[in-house]
Write a protein that binds this DNA or RNA. Structure first.
Length: 814
RNA sequence: GCCGAGGUGGCGGAACUGGCAGACGCGCAGGAUUUAGGAUCCUGUCCCGCAAGGGGUGGGAGUUCGAUUCUCCCCCUCGGCACCA
């Protein structure tokens, strides 16, 4: 049999005709399985690195089909976003045209790999029938007060000319173009994800089937810390200043307060201070510092004294209030109590300005010569709290403060609200209208979608092209009918992708975004598959939106994705594949030369799918050779004359039959456990090797060979579907292998009469022993001791102890 | 700095709840077949050693009859976060 593209195409056509990937979400006779691969951003054609994602998903979907599940495996396009618009500016091609062209090409590629989807459910986020419901989602959030507009210092990329979410800023640079991000004060739309911080955090615990590292990343991102908000009375001023600290146990060591330059109380504090000008100059200087100044690894701590004093509520002591450049307004209260003896940053600052350092925590065991001790320990010089360990002191001091009403225990989160507005064209318009009389007015749901106009000019002006289209922004107020102006910002694409998994269930529904009852039957997604790069952004936004919809009663489940699998990257020459590095492996030549199955098999065989793997063409060749060897077995089977003898199996037959059953068992376990495709494939290789070996060594009856060959191709089917179908048909199969059951093994076939075990002396292997599994322990020990090798090593002495681990080893302790 | 994941032949990687380290594949070597090349088949391949033997899972200790696996310390690589009080 010649394995050619013709076979690939034949089966791809046939699957399409038979609709094996078409999911009937209303059918309930089979157990359901929702297998979802993260939908791609259609920016260019796919290479083998991308292919890994889809091949894994396809293998899972097909495996589940073979097990009799009603499998839903849909695909769609995360089609809004910057790259399309950048192309438009550069090459004068409309983003829509560019995007749809890419979608066509990628679809073709996926199909040529035999990756199957229910294409009737295809969704594209840039189409009005989809983004209409993204806008609907916005309105629901708005109605609940979870979408709001505020002026804020926001991240601004001067190259992309747009605002970025915190999550899109990677060490101070734009995620997309690596331009240094600036801070600008602009009026922007936010989603109040912080309201869900606690639930997003605590529900991570129910996600047992998520990779630990993803959960940890989210946990760190949410960044919960427990502490106390302490009110420090200010001399000559009515209002106290509130500081947040996680270390109340160090309060007796607080020697000054420091505020952020943005702190709202600064102006008032320096109003009548003799240091007024100095402070104002300092504030002005940090305000105008270049954006890069914030990013330098450890920039110099600087500050200025306000001339004011606060009072330590525990000691009554007067401590100076400073403005310092290292205090973040965004976290806590923008003001902190400084304990130089126990905080490296405070220490650095105190040194510079000769502020007192007062140790109040003694390390328990650690001997340190550093002047700063940041760990916990035992309190000293802390009045009646002295001699208490830190953890107890935190409790006691907090209690005391709460009694005296000078402090209150609180939780703080690092998580910020999600900035969703973009001053860009290629996104879903934010469905809001501004009216002089009524102010901010939401577009009525019935008027959705707010359609993105298609005829526009693409100019990188820093404003959305929408601001230049009068016919778009000029509108009437939905409330009073007066002239009004539409919001011209569009939504972050992460909004589009935060709910798409719900839409697949009823993608053509025109009255609702999704049908609650069906969604509740089909979700959570049984298996979600995608790259780790989405560990924080996409996955957390989706969890947030899901919880929000749950609160509204639109869905009944807590979490959208029950199981998450994050696959590793495929690298070439040690680097991520990219056009600029010129190390992209394009699938086309592979398909031409070896066919889709060889590529699929190799991608899965390369290594554990969750880890990065290095692409090697030679490895691909190995898979090709293996498939040839497997096909040859099938051909030998066809030529096998066959004969009807009822005699017991001979030795080769027994070995082969046993291996076949064992392989079914092992491969099934590998699939179930955690997608160990690499070991699953290696076991099938072993079976093929064994079959060839058995045939070489003696006579193997047709029935035994037949079982082995069928086993090989059934087990391979999720990985090499075309070839499996072809061979199955060649051998007389009438129905698609994906309509047939996954093979099952017979436990009694696994039993063995003679096995070889290792004989160890003092933990080192010295000899081997073939045992009969019916032998008793004592018999086996005796046989082991009588081995000539062991005999000579013992030199006549008797062993101290003999340990027998059933079916494995005998260890003789001399 | 903090958090997480790792470190096993020439390479990708196996090894279940502590039980014969290196499955499977690549590469390499030898042989068969072939006009030659390619392809295919067989054999070998952790290291040192002709052998007997010895060493060996990042390094060091420990627990154990026995450790890639468990405990402690240290080193290195990758990923995430990072002035978060």
């Amino acid at each position: 049999m010649d394995y050619t593209r013709k076979i690939d195409e034949k089966w791809q056509r046939r699957w399409e005709e038979q609709g094996i990937f078409r999911a009937d979400t209303s059918a309930t006779e089979k157990p359901k399985y929702y297998c979802l691969v993260m939908f791609p951003y259609p920016s260019s054609e796919l290479h083998v690195g991308h292919a890994r994602n889809y091949v894994i998903g396809d293998a899972v979907a097909r495996y589940k089909m073979m097990q009799g599940y009603q499998v839903l495996s849909p695909m769609g396009w995360d089609a809004f976003g910057l790259p399309a618009e950048n192309q438009a500016i550069k090459h004068k091609i409309h983003p829509k045209e560019w995007t749809l062209k890419n979608i066509r090409r990628i679809t073709e590629q996926m199909q040529s790999w035999g990756v199957g989807y229910d294409w009737q459910r295809e969704i594209t986020t840039c189409m009005p029938e989809y983004y209409r419901w993204t806008q609907w989602l916005f309105l629901q959030l708005y109605r609940k007060g979870l979408a709001y507009r505020k002026e804020a210092l926001v991240n601004w990329c001067s190259s992309c000319k747009t605002v970025l979410a915190n999550e899109q800023v990677i060490s101070g640079e734009c995620e997309r173009c690596s331009t240094e991000v600036e801070q600008r004060n602009l009026k922007q739309w936010f989603f109040r994800i912080t309201d869900y911080a606690e639930r997003l955090l605590s529900d991570l615990d129910i996600l047992d089937e998520w990779p630990e590292r993803v959960k940890t990343m989210q946990k760190n991102w949410i960044g919960k810390s427990q502490g106390v908000e302490i009110s420090f009375p200010v001399e000559d001023v009515q209002e106290p200043i509130v500081c947040f600290t996680t270390r109340v146990d160090t309060i007796y060591g607080a020697t000054f307060l420091a505020l952020s330059w943005e702190h709202p109380r600064v102006v008032e504090l320096i109003k009548d201070s003799p240091h007024k000008e100095e402070v104002a100059a300092f504030v002005e200087r940090i305000k105008n510092r270049p954006p890069s100044a914030r990013l330098i690894e450890s920039f110099e701590k600087e500050g200025v004294w306000t001339g004011k004093y606060a009072v330590n509520p525990m000691t009554g002591e007067k401590i100076p209030i400073w403005i310092a450049n290292y205090i973040l307004m965004e976290y806590g209260t923008g003001a902190i109590m400084c304990v130089p003896a126990h905080d490296a940053r405070d220490y650095e600052f105190a040194q510079r300005y000769s502020l007192p350092v007062r140790p109040v925590i003694r390390p328990v065991e650690t001997v340190t010569d550093s002047p700063v001790y940041e760990g916990e320990g035992v309190l000293v010089d802390s009045a009646e709290f002295s001699r208490l360990p830190s953890d107890q002191a935190k409790e006691k001091i907090a209690e005391r403060m709460e009694e005296k009403k000078t402090g209150v225990r609180v939780h703080k989160y690092k998580l910020r609200d999600w900035l969703i507005s973009r001053q860009r064209y290629w996104g879903a318009p934010i469905p809001m209208v501004y009216c002089e009389g009524c102010g901010e007015v939401p577009v009525p749901e019935g008027d959705l979608p707010v359609v993105l106009p298609e005829t526009v000019q693409f100019l990188p002006t820093g404003q959305s092209p929408l601001t230049l289209i009068e016919s778009f922004y000029r509108t009437k107020c939905p409330r009073c009918g007066a002239d009004a102006r539409r919001e011209t910002d569009t939504m972050d694409t992460f909004v589009d992708s935060s709910w798409y998994y719900l839409r697949y269930i009823s993608p053509r529904e025109t009255d609702v975004p999704f049908v609650t009852s069906t969604v509740n039957e089909w979700l959570p997604v049984d298996q979600y598959i995608g790259g780790v790069e989405h560990a924080i952004l996409h996955l957390m936004y989706s969890r947030f939106v899901n919880k929000f919809l749950q609160d509204l009663g639109y869905v009944s489940f807590d979490e959208p994705f029950a199981r998450l699998f994050t696959q590793g990257m495929i690298v070439k020459d040690g680097a991520k594949m990219s056009k600029s590095k010129g190390n992209v492996v394009a699938p086309d030549y592979i398909l031409e030369k070896y066919g889709a199955d060889t590529m699929r098999l190799y991608i899965l065989f390369m290594g554990p799918p969750e880890k990065d793997a290095e692409w090697q063409d030679e490895g691909l060749l190995g898979c090709w050779r293996f498939l040839q060897r497997a096909v040859r077995l099938a051909e030998m089977l066809i030529e096998h004359p066959g004969e009807a003898t009822e005699d017991a199996l001979n030795e080769q037959e027994q070995t082969l039959a046993r291996k076949a059953h064992l392989t079914i068992k092992d491969v099934t376990e590998d699939m179930e456990k955690s997608f160990q495709f690499n070991t699953a494939i290696s076991r099938i290789m072993e079976l093929v090797n064994q079959a060839h070996k058995s045939l070489n060594e003696g006579y193997v009856r047709k029935s035994v060979l037949e079982h082995a060959v069928h086993t090989v191709f059934f087990l391979l089917a999720p990985f090499t579907p075309h070839l499996s179908e072809e061979v199955h048909q060649m051998l007389g199969g009438q129905v698609s292998v994906f309509r047939r059951a996954w093979p099952e093994y017979q436990a009694e076939m696994l039993r063995e009469e003679r096995i070889e075990i290792g004989v160890l002396m003092n933990g080192k292997v010295r000899d081997k022993l073939t045992i009969d599994t019916r032998w008793t322990q004592d018999e086996i020990k005796e046989k082991a001791l009588s081995l000539s090798r062991i005999h000579s090593l013992l030199q006549g002495k008797s062993p101290k102890k003999v340990i027998y681990v059933p079916q494995r080893i005998v260890n003789i302790v001399a």
